[in-house]
Amino acid sequence: MSYTWTHIYKITLLCGMIFIATSISVAQIVFEKDTLTIFSATGKAHKFNVEIASTNEERSQGLMYRKNMAKNAGMLFVYNKPNNVTMWMKNTYIPLDMLFFNSEGKVVYIKENTTPHSTKTIASDQDVIGVLELNAGTTFQLGIKVGDIAQHRLLQR
């Protein structure tokens, strides 16, 4: 099969457009950073450095495309009002623990060790104001349970 310069130009142009589209779609958002503390029933305080996802764009991207996360880090998804929130792991490489919070900052549901890249939805089955994603195994290691309280300015309303 022989190609003319026109064919080669069109193929090169198409490859360039695909590269640009792919680069744009995985561009990382710069998230606001803060700290969040979870107080367990035993009185122990667990402090995390979190990135805040509070807009639709930020929540849509979340931790997608990241290959790792620091041990004491996480991402806090916050919503303007309590609602039934569903999460998934599409394009997420890191297995996670997800903690769902009511408007008092109380942990009402925990989904441990989520499956990377899964499109299966994860929901608390009740209205929540926020979701904290941590590295998988963190809640078990630290003994964080349903009923524990998170302290963060965006969770107490």
Score class of each variant (00 low, 15 high):
residue 48 F to W: 07
residue 3 Y to A: 11
residue 94 I to T: 03
residue 67 K to P: 00
residue 54 S to K: 13
residue 141 Q to N: 12
residue 36 L to P: 13
residue 97 D to Q: 02
residue 93 Y to W: 07
residue 120 K to H: 15
residue 5 W to I: 08
residue 119 T to F: 09
residue 91 N to T: 04
residue 4 T to D: 07
residue 50 V to G: 10
residue 67 K to L: 10
residue 107 V to C: 07
residue 149 I to R: 12
residue 108 V to T: 12
residue 66 R to A: 03
residue 85 V to A: 04
residue 105 G to T: 04
residue 107 V to G: 07
residue 50 V to I: 15
residue 23 S to R: 06
residue 37 T to N: 04
residue 65 Y to K: 03
residue 153 R to T: 09
residue 24 I to E: 00
residue 127 D to P: 11
residue 115 T to A: 05
residue 73 A to F: 03
residue 83 N to M: 07
residue 91 N to C: 06
residue 25 S to G: 01
residue 91 N to D: 15
residue 155 L to V: 04
residue 155 L to Q: 09
residue 147 G to K: 14
residue 63 L to I: 10
residue 43 G to W: 05
residue 116 P to Y: 02
residue 75 M to L: 06
residue 10 K to I: 01
residue 135 N to R: 01
residue 31 F to R: 05
residue 125 D to C: 05
residue 115 T to K: 11
residue 94 I to G: 08
residue 101 F to S: 05
residue 10 K to E: 06
residue 90 K to N: 09
residue 53 A to L: 11
residue 107 V to Q: 05
residue 58 E to F: 12
residue 128 V to R: 00
residue 85 V to T: 02
residue 30 V to M: 03
residue 82 P to V: 15
residue 151 Q to F: 09
residue 145 K to I: 10
residue 70 A to D: 12
residue 52 I to F: 04
residue 6 T to L: 07
residue 35 T to H: 12
residue 74 G to S: 12
residue 119 T to I: 10
residue 18 I to N: 01
residue 2 S to R: 06
residue 112 E to A: 12
residue 46 H to W: 05
residue 105 G to W: 00
residue 47 K to L: 07
residue 131 V to F: 07
residue 98 M to E: 01
residue 123 A to S: 15
residue 69 M to P: 13
residue 103 S to I: 00
residue 142 L to I: 09
residue 93 Y to G: 01
residue 29 I to N: 03
residue 94 I to K: 01
residue 129 I to V: 11
residue 155 L to S: 11
residue 86 T to K: 09
residue 61 Q to T: 06
residue 126 Q to I: 00
residue 55 T to M: 14
residue 59 R to H: 14
residue 29 I to M: 04
residue 125 D to S: 13
residue 111 K to Y: 13
residue 65 Y to S: 04
residue 24 I to V: 11
residue 32 E to H: 13
residue 61 Q to A: 08
residue 68 N to T: 11
residue 128 V to C: 08
residue 114 T to W: 03
residue 50 V to W: 08
residue 143 G to P: 14
